[in-house]
């Protein structure tokens, strides 16, 4: 069983800490590395992939260090975020080149097998320069899979893909995970991770903010307090009513309206419509204030 193991791994650039003391173990199946842009996901992925030295800590893939160790690529397949490939090659030539670089005994057969996995046989004789973004991504995955690696690392694999291409890629990764491969992909989009992986590692500001089963973390995310800005025809009257409701933690009257801290998103948004109607108050505006992903992550760090 090939696992990715990090023990107290940090990486800094000068005075800036990009990854801060992360300890985690990633085993077979699909794991999502989730976090806002600039959180340190790519830095972490690059270190696991052997393209960046940890400043401190221990990092191994299948028991071997990945930095300064080209042999590790017999175990790892990497699909980097940057979509630059030898675009003058055909898809088949690209994958066969990868097979030859891995010194596989039968590069042609290995290339055919990898291309079949990503379902690109129909377009394999076209130059990569003619491919769509999704097709390029798939052929890059085929290149990374050609040596049948135990570990597949993908940096933001869904960026720039249309919904159909995303679904296809998700099915592909899901299938590989079910067949016992260790798949680790990074994403800053919650829904992508939700659809694809049971296990997630949430990285915020270089730290591991949450780790484990997605559903538990998702519950934590949706049951967190929400802040709403409410504007009505009579803010004080509504405020007085709201403060008596269990779904509301706090109310503040400001010049711009009411700032309401709701304990539960769903209950509050259902209740407020009924409350304003019953009290004869006109509800003019209801704005969630902290729906950015960053605020969700920040909340996770606090809990």
């Amino acid at each position: 069983m090939t696992a990715i193991e990090l023990r107290n791994v940090s990486r800094w650039y000068g005075n800036v800490v990009a990854v801060n003391d992360i300890t985690m173990t990633i085993g077979p199946g699909v794991t999502g590395l989730l976090g806002p842009n600039g959180a340190g996901k790519s830095t972490l992925l690059h270190m696991i992939a052997g393209f960046l030295a940890p400043s401190r800590g221990e990092l191994t893939v299948g028991g071997a260090a990945s930095w300064h160790n080209p042999e590790i690529y017999r175990t790892i397949g990497l699909v980097p975020e940057r979509d630059s490939v030898y675009a003058f090659l055909t898809g088949e030539q690209f994958v066969r080149t990868a097979a030859r670089l891995h010194k596989l005994p039968d590069p042609d057969a290995a290339a055919r097998r990898a291309i079949a996995i990503v379902e690109m046989a129909g377009a394999q004789d076209r130059k990569i320069s003619t491919y769509s973004k999704g097709m390029r991504q798939r052929i890059r995955v085929a290149g990374a899979l050609v040596h049948d690696p135990q570990v597949l690392l993908l940096d933001e694999p869904f960026n720039g893909m249309d919904p159909r291409q995303r679904l296809h890629m998700m099915d592909l990764l899901h299938g590989l995970g079910e067949r016992g491969r260790t798949i680790l992909f990074s994403s800053h989009i919650l829904e992508e991770v939700e659809r694809l992986s049971g296990t997630i590692q949430v990285i915020v500001a270089g730290r591991l903010a949450a780790s484990g089963d997605f559903r538990a973390i998702r519950r934590l995310m949706t049951s967190r307090p929400h802040v709403f800005l409410v504007r009505t025809s009579d803010d004080r009257k509504l405020g007085a009513t709201l403060i008596g409701r269990p779904a509301v933690n706090g109310v503040e009257v400001t010049d711009g309206g009411l700032t309401v801290r709701a304990a539960d998103y769903g209950t509050f948004t259902r209740e407020i419509a009924a409350l304003t109607r019953d009290q004869g108050i006109a509800l003019r505006e209801l704005l969630p204030e902290d729906e950015s992903l960053e605020s969700v992550f920040a909340y996770l760090v606090e809990t």
């Binding site: 393209f51 590790i72 397949g77 990497l78 980097p80 630059s84 490939v85 030898y86 990868a98």
Partner: peptide, 12 residues
């Protein structure tokens, strides 16, 4: 352009 990564992510 970063395409060197495709080459270096192999045991060559």
């Amino acid at each position: 352009d970063g395409s060197i990564v495709q080459l270096l992510a192999t045991p060559v």
